[in-house]
Design a protein around this nucleic acid. Sequence first.
DNA 1: GCAATGATGCACT
DNA 2: GTGCATCATTGCG
Length: 209
Amino acid sequence: MMPKLKPLPRSFYARDTHIVARELLGKIVLRTIGGKKISGRITEVEAYVGEDDLACHASRGQTARTEIMYGEPGHAYIYLIYGMYHCFNIVTEQENFPAAVLVRALEPLHGLPTMQRRRPTAKKWEQLCNGPGKLTQALAITQKMNNEDLVQSNCLTVLDDGWHQPAHDIATSPRIGIAYAGTAIDYPWRYFIKDSPFVSNTKPSAYSK
DNA sequence: GCAATGATGCACT
DNA sequence: GTGCATCATTGCG
């Protein structure tokens, strides 16, 4: 019997960020646009935790941009990076504690033609969502959805289909693109599905300098 | 195959 | 003015 697809409840997100990050692997991001559904299964995430994490945007304290991370868990934190790409994060933990999980890659499930149209440079379907900027393009996730409540949104949610990713299929590594982050550079806070062809293309040099 | 680099806008010193 | 939780293209060989 097919388990029912339902949005993850608030309580799922209101926990330790590393637990949420690991358990998000295998869950389904569903984007609904004009009645059309685009979705993908999460294959790669990163945890950003608190003001003491030098890679976390909140390490400089609460500002207009970071206040969403201090807000209610289960909301989307979306920001523009390098002037042209969006990054999709999910706020975790309790209010007033700034933390979030960055969704870095998806295995495309529904709406592949639409994704392909949005990302004409992708040569294979593995490349439609294998990076944080790529998946927001493929799912048309923009800053307009910043602070969207994923628990009850009708345009952007995360679904549980009952699948639980076995722990032995989860690998970790340092986070990508945070070479500026001092002591936090080496924290193994990137979680991804081992051997998945749908994780972001990262050379060792990208995070070992 | 791989390393190097330009594109591009906004939050924040 | 600076620097970014990125990506695609270029230019090498």
